[in-house]
Design a protein around this nucleic acid. Structure first.
Lengths: 256, 256
DNA sequence: ATTTGACATTAACGTTACGTAAAAGTATAT
DNA sequence: ATATACTTTTACGTAACGTTAATGTCAAAT
């Protein structure tokens, strides 16, 4: 099926100006231009526009969207699964706002008392986002924390056999790491195997694996005392060793 | 409790620039200015900012907000109740988007087929609202469409045995309906049994069954070509016959 | 007593994602 | 052949702030 600007605009519920703008900023080009200079869109463009609109709905800027969907590694299905996750989170945020409104009504009717802090609960999604942009270094820690929360959630909805496989993998990571630590070489074969097993292990918790996140998590293993204690339980220094191994594994070690 | 710009900004999760801008456009003035020219906000301003943020969350422009909350007839409680209603609607819209994402994933995995129109369902909040206001009559058809959305969603999260039970029931409905169609009597025993089986079948998809919704769906089976084709596949006219049977079953046939 | 660092002020230009208007070409129907 | 319903590019306008600059205030530490 082919569409002119107006047809596609009507289909998607946007203005023709928007489509021309998207063309202008190279985010959605028409499939072809006909002999009169009219923009003609095809199936691929329809699907791409849908993708763009999902991102827009989630408040992603067009600049960012461009980076994301023009990336040759862009995986549509993975992106859709993230959309789903974020929409579910957004729904939870709205639930928070609804309960805020309800409490506020109760307060105005003199039934309860609210603190000023409570009055703004549910609005602060933005703050989290800002923090993540500003403090680039802390992002990874944060990333780790978030991952931790989601991990807990995910374990709860795991099947028995998945759980057993996870336990097996957990042990294997630790055993390999211990053996690797004795070699003293984070770039060595054993250490890299540990890092790879760790990646597999992570895939149980994360919907989308990325080297950046993996490297960030590794740093957190050193920074957060809880994790440090966990990895250092046999040999002090194991946490740092593991971080180095993972940084090499992910290619994020800027010292080497 | 009194707040400086920064304190209030932090409390509410906005920037200080935002508060100064709100002052500038006379939408939220500080309670007073201290001897050094600093803005000092009080309780009333905190509550007003909360109101502003509720409106903002719902996408109302600052210009409109100004008109609304500066209106001497402005009723806080009434406004809060409207916020609640609109937040609930927004949540429904997000549910729609979620089911859209899920369907799109299923499509990308080759499990189902989507029309281009379906791909943009859930984005057109404004259009939907307008339509519902304009064409009050079509609301019931719409009711059937919504049910369709939820149905898709539910099937995606169904267990294997539930799914098999559903398939069995689906076949039984069709067989009974075919037999009933041959009798030619939508009020007859067989047709009413088909309608009852259909009710059971629906219970798989709906959390709350109602006669109104059932009747609405029946009408949609006739109006929507996709469904019509499905029920008419053996004998043309089956869709209408089935609708009549269901209207009698639910007691919504206004001709009888 | 002053210096530092975190706060505050106004002023003014920049940005994003379009809306809107102008001037002009194109397709279809009567 | 003219109306009308499209399309094009160009270009200026707008909302809600972000950002930077230049400057003033205050509490704590030196």
């Amino acid at each position: 099926m082919e569409y002119t600007v107006q047809e596609l605009a009507k289909l998607a519920g946007v203005s023709t100006r928007t489509l021309r703008y998207y063309d202008e900023i190279d985010i959605l080009k028409p499939a072809r231009i006909n002999s009169s200079g009219y923009r003609i869109y095809g199936q691929k463009e329809v699907d791409k526009l849908q993708q763009i609109m999902f991102y827009r709905e989630l408040g992603v800027s067009l600049g960012q969207i461009k980076e994301i969907i023009c990336d040759p590694n862009f995986d549509v299905i993975q992106a859709l699964k993230r959309h789903r996750k974020e929409l579910l989170e957004k729904r939870q945020q709205i639930d928070l706002l609804i309960s805020n409104v309800e409490k506020t009504i109760a307060e105005k009717e003199g039934k309860i008392v609210m603190t000023d802090k409570e009055k703004f609960e549910g609005f602060k999604k933005k703050l989290v986002e800002e923090n993540e942009k500003k403090y680039g270094k802390e992002v990874r820690e944060k990333y780790g924390e978030d991952a931790l929360e989601k991990a807990n959630q995910k374990v709860l909805s795991m099947s028995q056999e998945q759980y057993e496989e996870l336990e097996r993998l957990t042990k294997e990571v630790l055993n390999t790491l211990d053996a690797a630590f004795k070699t003293g070489d984070p770039a060595g074969e054993l250490a890299q195997k540990a890092a790879d097993l760790h990646r597999q292990w992570l895939s149980f918790y994360w919907d989308d694996y990325s080297k950046e996140a993996h490297a960030g998590l590794a740093q957190m293993y050193v920074d957060d005392p809880r994790f440090r204690a966990y990895y250092d339980r046999k040999q002090p220094g194991t946490a740092e060793f593991f971080r180095d191994a993972i940084l090499i594994y992910t290619g994020k070690n800027h010292r080497a």
